[in-house]
Design a protein around this nucleic acid. Sequence first.
DNA 1: AGCATAATTGAACAATGTTTAATATTCAAG
DNA 2: CTTGAATATTAAACATTGTTCAATTATGCT
Lengths: 204, 204
Amino acid sequence: MARRNDHSREELQSMAIDAARAIISQEGIEGVSARKVAQKIGYTVGTLYQSFENIHDLVLHANAFTLSELLAELDVAAGASRDPQQRVLKIAETYLRFAEGHERQWAAVFRHSLPRGHIMPDWYQARVDALFALLENALRTLAPRRSRQSIQLASRTLWSSVHGICILHTGDKLFSDSIASPQALLQSLVKHYLHSWLNEGKSG
Amino acid sequence: MARRNDHSREELQSMAIDAARAIISQEGIEGVSARKVAQKIGYTVGTLYQSFENIHDLVLHANAFTLSELLAELDVAAGASRDPQQRVLKIAETYLRFAEGHERQWAAVFRHSLPRGHIMPDWYQARVDALFALLENALRTLAPRRSRQSIQLASRTLWSSVHGICILHTGDKLFSDSIASPQALLQSLVKHYLHSWLNEGKSG
DNA sequence: AGCATAATTGAACAATGTTTAATATTCAAG
DNA sequence: CTTGAATATTAAACATTGTTCAATTATGCT
């Protein structure tokens, strides 16, 4: 029996989250089970249920970690380019690269669904909001005079679209023939959407 | 014991698929289980396994049905508008409306993942390809002189983007504040992307 | 009617999430 | 240092999952 003070409650939590992340990255989210996580950290299932409400709770923590990693990379990308338009493209490309490089982790974030009736916890929603805010800020510097509403509309349109391109590219491979690379799709999207969006009002 | 000739193999299959679809539309894909489907059609689990390889196979058939429904609605939408650009928007809006109106069915299509190593069957991939072809055709009539490659690139970019908007709108409600409606996002996307795409080469 | 074929069942298996009584460990008080 | 209260941990149990398969039952042909 593991001694009580071998690990604090916090240590145990982060050990479990790490274990879950390891399983996800190797076998995908379907491979995660309470017993497997417990065995990986040298405890039994019951102990897990003292730190996590249920298995969804544990997965949610693992996914939050993934979101934080993603946010960190996007933050770097957002700061790298001088040209604001290049910055938007860079963000999109970094998002795609992350999805490719952490395919199972990333899939886990968007495949996982909470049990019915449960709502997303604040600490999780906060991470998601931070992602959206990132692109919103990039657009704000790109078009400082546009209204808040206009910028929100554009940033969400772009974000959803980039997300859609990544979704359809990774994993399920919905496109049977791979003539157009996802990078090309991103480039086409950002270029054309921004081109028209930036000229809106000027010539119409 | 159900008599052998009560239902032919084909009848049994379609009964099972209908049952699965009913469960999906009521409880979502997580609610589908072999026993529940079997009980709904008045047979036992074992019988299901004579018509379907495994539970994923059954879900796949249910999802294919959903794709066919979607394709039918999109076909109508594509024929409704005279103006080719309006047609593209109409397709996108119809896609969104379908996702909203058949939320669980639609989520089942994109949440379901095959067991590792299994590839998507041809009869399923064919339905997916038909969806893509629909938008591709709309773009072809919109810009008949563009190269095949250019049209493929644009149609996939648009399709992925529309898909992304629908994904982020339904179910998980990733946008915590709902200032911009998904319809507004679609409109913004189609309008701006097409505007720039159509003028490409003319002014640059 | 009897027989071969095949559909259907029911029970079994391992693995899943989750709960809980029993046990082991720690820490503080005497 | 011992005792006892508090609590971390375990092991076993439960229901439910997907899947298989020998046994049973219905069918159709001779």
